[in-house]
């Protein structure tokens, strides 16, 4: 048998506490819950509850879109990001799939630039904000056009993220002490 490499760091002393040594669901409750979780009728009722909520969520998404646009107009990037994040979280369950995908792309991008501590590409942000607003307000949001826009923007974001990663990578000769 080959020996495993020794770790380079100090080993942590860990105590393992097994289920039962701490309180868990009683056997009876666990069995009943599992039965319900796997019951097709229960699953259908739950799935219907999500569908029934879609219109309410769509209205909520539109309210967030309005707040996001207002924040962007006053160059408030933090609020813009917060609102885009809210849209990303709600849009999928509101049936606004393309809107959710575009908001997700914007959130990914804003998160990456915040972590890399670099300035945002204003054009890219504006492009996303306009696309989110248009998609959310379109009657036929779930069309191939919405999908195409989401795909194009996702490709743009990927390109930008690659640029951010490249610039964060140490260049040869940099950071090496003589």
């Amino acid at each position: 048998m080959t020996a495993r490499k020794s770790p380079p760091h100090k080993h942590a002393r860990a105590i393992k506490i097994m289920p039962g040594a701490y309180p868990v669901f009683s056997h009876k409750t666990a069995m009943r819950l599992l039965q319900l979780l796997r019951d097709p009728e229960v699953q259908e009722t739950a799935a219907r509850a999500i569908v029934d909520k879609a219109e309410e969520l769509r209205i909520a998404v539109l309210a967030h879109v309005g707040r996001m646009e207002a924040a962007a107009r006053s160059a408030d990037l933090v609020t813009t990001f917060e609102q885009a994040h809210e849209i990303r979280g709600l849009a999928g369950n509101a049936g606004l799939v393309a809107t959710g995908r575009i908001a997700n792309g914007l959130c990914k991008y804003l998160d990456a630039i915040e972590r890399a501590e670099c300035a945002s590409d204003r054009e890219l942000v504006v492009l996303h904000l306009e696309a989110i607003a248009r998609a959310a307000r379109a009657e036929d949001e779930a069309t191939r056009l919405g999908d195409a826009v989401a795909n194009e923007l996702a490709a743009l974001v990927d390109k930008k993220l690659a640029e951010i990663n490249d610039s964060a990578r140490p260049r040869p000769g940099h950071g090496v002490r003589a």
């Binding site: 819950l33 699953q43 739950a46 979280g89 849009a91």
Partner: peptide
């Protein structure tokens, strides 16, 4: 997110059936 009934139920089943 987006939340699905199946996704949530799977997570609940996991904590009930296989407590870690």
């Amino acid at each position: 997110k987006p939340i699905t009934a199946q996704g949530l139920f799977l997570r609940i089943a996991e904590i009930v059936e296989r407590p870690r």
